[in-house]
Computed example of a mutant assay.
Amino acid sequence: MSKEYRGKRVVLWPVNIDSSASRGEGRKIPLRDAVRKPRVEEIVEAARRLGLNPVVEEARYPRKWWEQTKRIIVDKAGSKLETLRRIAAEVKRLREEKKLRHSD
């Protein structure tokens, strides 16, 4: 991430909000706030809904450097943890809406 964004944007890896990941594996938020196996597409949609201007980049998560994955860079909304919590909550809402649409 370039210096011009420092303090204004946040790098988010899907594992940061994944309830199936441990803190040691990279989860940053409490289990009660986390989402099971979040997909990049869900995170991007949640960030869009929150007006956080998401940008997806191909990258390797440092703790699993051998796996090619993606990271999402978003505008910062409060602290990094608060931004992660808000995105996780929005992913949960997206999943609920999807479930309701499919149950009709």
Results as ranks from 00 to 15, higher is better:
101 R>P: 01
57 E>D: 09
88 A>C: 06
83 T>C: 08
55 V>H: 12
26 G>T: 10
51 G>K: 13
80 K>L: 08
42 E>Y: 03
98 K>M: 10
35 V>I: 12
23 R>Y: 14
55 V>D: 09
13 W>C: 03
50 L>T: 15
9 R>G: 12
98 K>F: 12
101 R>C: 00
93 R>E: 12
97 E>M: 09
98 K>I: 08
43 I>D: 01
61 Y>A: 02
21 A>Q: 06
35 V>S: 03
45 E>A: 12
99 K>M: 11
13 W>T: 03
65 W>R: 13
25 E>C: 01
61 Y>C: 02
29 I>F: 02
104 D>V: 11
2 S>W: 03
44 V>C: 04
52 L>K: 06
32 R>G: 07
99 K>N: 04
76 K>W: 05
99 K>D: 11
64 K>C: 02
104 D>P: 03
84 L>E: 03
84 L>C: 08
99 K>A: 14
89 A>G: 14
25 E>K: 05
67 E>C: 00
41 E>H: 07
78 G>M: 07
44 V>K: 06
46 A>W: 02
11 V>N: 07
87 I>G: 01
48 R>I: 09
97 E>G: 10
20 S>W: 08
13 W>D: 01
41 E>Y: 03
104 D>S: 10
90 E>L: 08
21 A>R: 02
88 A>L: 02
95 R>N: 15
20 S>Q: 12
20 S>F: 09
68 Q>L: 12
13 W>P: 00
12 L>I: 15
35 V>Q: 00
17 I>Y: 04
10 V>L: 11
93 R>W: 06
101 R>V: 07
77 A>E: 14
102 H>T: 08
66 W>S: 04
49 R>V: 05
81 L>A: 13
84 L>T: 02
15 V>E: 01
32 R>P: 05
46 A>N: 06
4 E>I: 09
65 W>L: 14
8 K>H: 14
2 S>A: 07
89 A>E: 15
32 R>D: 14
93 R>T: 10
21 A>N: 07
70 K>P: 04
98 K>W: 09
65 W>I: 15
46 A>I: 04
47 A>N: 07
100 L>V: 10
20 S>G: 07
100 L>N: 07
86 R>S: 14
73 I>A: 11
73 I>N: 06
87 I>T: 04
103 S>C: 00
24 G>A: 15
58 E>I: 10
89 A>M: 10
32 R>Y: 05
52 L>F: 08
100 L>W: 06
22 S>V: 03
45 E>G: 04
96 E>M: 07
43 I>C: 02
97 E>Y: 08
60 R>S: 13
84 L>S: 02
34 A>T: 04
51 G>D: 12
79 S>I: 00
42 E>T: 01
85 R>G: 02
43 I>R: 00
74 V>S: 15
29 I>M: 01
3 K>E: 12
1 M>N: 10
95 R>E: 11
35 V>K: 00
89 A>D: 15
60 R>G: 06
75 D>H: 05
96 E>N: 08
57 E>V: 11
